[in-house]
Simulated scan of single mutants.
Amino acid sequence: MLETIEEGSTVELAIQSVARHIRPSDPAGDDIAVKWLVKALEICEGRNINLLLYSDLSFWVERHEDAVRLCQRLNHPNLGIVFCGYHWYAVDGEDIQATLGEVAPYLRQVNLSGSRRSPLGFGNVATIEPLDVVSWTISHCSGRLKRSVLKEWLAIWDGWKEATLIVS
């Protein structure tokens, strides 16, 4: 795929699994992921493609800390992180300030939505809701992002009252 998409693209990568025996967030899978990412990033560098790690509930890269761990290890300019408010809330939902601080050096994109704890949601954990229906404090998140992380808000999409912020 990386060889055929348009040069200069951005790819959000959610790593679902690295091996059958390795559970979500287990650092034992780092070497496997790094081996693949090194090859992918060689292609990305040559084609000016940004590869953004996307943390996803029940995936191997489940927590934003997992994505940070990979970014720190690889230290590649074409590798970054998407902060997804829903997945942060569904997986952890604690200490957003610390999470954003840790993610900040690698943050390239932000995806926010409202959410509430509910067995009717994805993974029987939480629902995705409009921004004004929220159990976690989105104002703390957006305030922190504006103050210390985002250099420039390039795009805000408000189709479902969901915001996607792209960081320059």
Rank of each mutant, 00 (worst) to 15 (best):
D95I: 02
V133G: 00
G46A: 14
S9D: 08
R20F: 00
G159K: 12
I43K: 09
L2T: 02
L150M: 13
R108A: 07
S25T: 04
R20S: 12
L57G: 05
L112P: 02
E42I: 12
E65D: 09
K146T: 05
C141Q: 00
L79S: 08
E12V: 05
F83P: 01
L37I: 10
A163V: 10
D92F: 03
S135K: 12
A14F: 10
I96Q: 06
N78F: 06
S142E: 06
E162K: 05
I32G: 01
V38Y: 04
A98I: 01
E162Y: 09
L112D: 08
C71D: 00
L13G: 12
F83H: 07
L131F: 09
A155T: 13
L165D: 08
T10L: 09
G8R: 04
A40R: 13
G46Y: 09
I81P: 09
C71I: 08
R144N: 09
A90F: 07
W88C: 01
S9L: 04
A40F: 11
V82F: 00
T164K: 15
Y86H: 14
E129K: 04
T164S: 15
R116G: 11
S142Y: 00
V134G: 11
G85M: 00
L37W: 04
P119W: 15
L79P: 02
V38G: 04
Q72E: 15
R108I: 06
N75S: 15
D30Q: 03
W136N: 02
S115Q: 05
N124L: 13
W88V: 09
H21V: 13
Q16C: 12
E3A: 12
A28P: 06
L120Q: 14
R73N: 02
S115I: 06
L145W: 00
T10H: 00
R147W: 07
E152S: 14
H76A: 01
I22R: 04
E152A: 12
L107Y: 01
L145K: 01
P130G: 11
W153K: 03
A40H: 11
C84D: 15
H87M: 08
H140L: 09
N48C: 13
R108C: 01
R20M: 03
L2I: 02
E102P: 02
V68E: 03
P130A: 07
K161G: 14
R47I: 04
V167C: 13
W157T: 14
R147P: 01
G123Y: 06
G8H: 03
S55K: 03
F59Y: 13
C84K: 02
W36Q: 05
Q16W: 13
A67K: 11
D95T: 03
R117T: 11
L57T: 12
D92C: 13
I166R: 13
R108S: 09
L51R: 01
I49Y: 08
W153A: 02
A98C: 08
L145T: 02
I5N: 00
F122M: 10
L120N: 10
